[in-house]
């Protein structure tokens, strides 16, 4: 029982320092990487390279938006992302000859969305473990997709759409604009709507949320449904920009999205974090890997760096939580 007026000064200083650490670490890290990157390589601070960084961010960024909801609602993580990306890309290209590009893309998103609905029902309403459930649905969806296309590469045939997506609109790559729109929508949904409040409350204290008449099951389920839908959408975009897809095209995206969210300081324990934080984490991670690539660091060592970064971010989160007194 710490009454606010009786907290000794040292403890308040400590709290302030912790708050600073939690809020400032990310911008400082990004700034630091920009400086280090430009010192290490002349190519780093070129428009061309930074444009590449932002484009690279966009595809996984759309998934990060969903994954942020999953984290804050205390849903642990969605491991069905690669399957949803895969099914989106495969259907968008595979159905092109039959349905046309737009309709095929729509079917791609809807298929992932439907699978996401199953995730949501199983996790939200049947209260199954999210990690196991998404692992299972992901494996099933990927299996079906593989069987459907025969496990080979699918090619698209719509160079015009490809050119549009990889081109620019008012000077900004179209794909980046799409990502920014999704990010803004996700940010507003999380921070400004009743649903967003439900997400935070459910993640912070599910029992109290239930006692406060919050639709717990819906909220949790919706977070997973959103993530799958956005992953499918991301897969469609990926397929259309490459005009080629194989079932395994989404491999690793779940890891990238989780890394970004965790590094952004969104708590795995739920109830804390924000869209800007998660996207800041994404920017930091993308910059870091860009710098490593530019400086010719071998892929194996990159894994080591990324893994350490995640471990450090999780450790910091747990440390700050303990200090903050919230369990």
């Amino acid at each position: 029982m710490t009454s606010t007026s009786t907290v000794p000064p040292r403890a308040t200083d400590e709290k302030r320092a912790n708050k600073l650490l939690g809020g400032v670490a990310l911008p400082v890290g990004i700034l630091g990487l920009l400086i280090v990157g430009s010192l290490l390589s002349e190519q780093f601070l070129t428009t061309r390279n930074l444009t590449n960084v932002v484009i690279n961010m966009s595809i996984v960024g759309i998934i990060v938006v969903g994954m942020t909801f999953v984290f804050i609602v205390r849903g642990l993580a969605d491991l069905s992302v690669p399957a949803m990306v895969g099914i989106g890309a495969l259907l968008a290209l595979g159905l092109q000859p039959a349905l046309g590009s737009v309709l095929a893309a729509l079917v791609g998103v809807l298929a992932a969305s439907l699978a996401g609905l199953i995730n949501g029902l199983l996790i939200g309403y049947a209260r199954l473990n999210p990690v196991i459930t998404t692992l299972a649905t992901g494996t099933i969806v990927l299996g079906v997709a593989q069987a459907a296309v025969g496990g080979v590469i699918v090619y698209g045939n719509d160079p015009e759409l490809q050119a549009f997506l990889t081109g620019r609109l008012i000077g900004v790559p179209v794909i980046v604009l799409i990502f920014l729109a999704v990010a803004l929508g996700g940010h507003l949904l999380l921070s400004r709507t009743t649903f967003g409040r439900w997400v935070y409350a459910t993640g912070s204290n599910p029992e109290a949320a239930r006692a406060s008449a919050i639709p717990l099951q819906f909220t949790k389920g919706a977070a997973f449904w959103m993530t799958a839908t956005l992953s499918g959408f991301s897969g469609v975009l990926l397929g259309l920009t490459l005009q080629t897809a194989r079932p395994g095209v989404g491999a690793g995206y779940e890891f990238d999205a989780i890394t970004a969210v965790v590094v952004g300081g969104v708590s795995l324990l739920g109830g804390f974090g924000s869209m800007p934080r998660a996207l800041g984490g994404l920017l930091l991670v993308t910059l870091l890997s860009n710098i490593m690539v530019l400086n010719g660091i071998p892929t194996e060592s990159q894994g080591l760096v990324m893994g350490s970064l995640i471990a450090a971010a999780v450790a910091l989160d747990v440390y700050l939580r303990r200090r903050g007194g919230a369990s």
């Binding site: 935070y200 409350a201 912070s204 204290n205 029992e207 006692a211 109830g271 007194g325 919230a326």
Partner: peptide
């Protein structure tokens, strides 16, 4: 357990 969400603000 059932009353407050500790990590949220008083307002929330």
């Amino acid at each position: 357990r059932d009353g407050v969400a500790l990590s949220l603000t008083v307002k929330d």
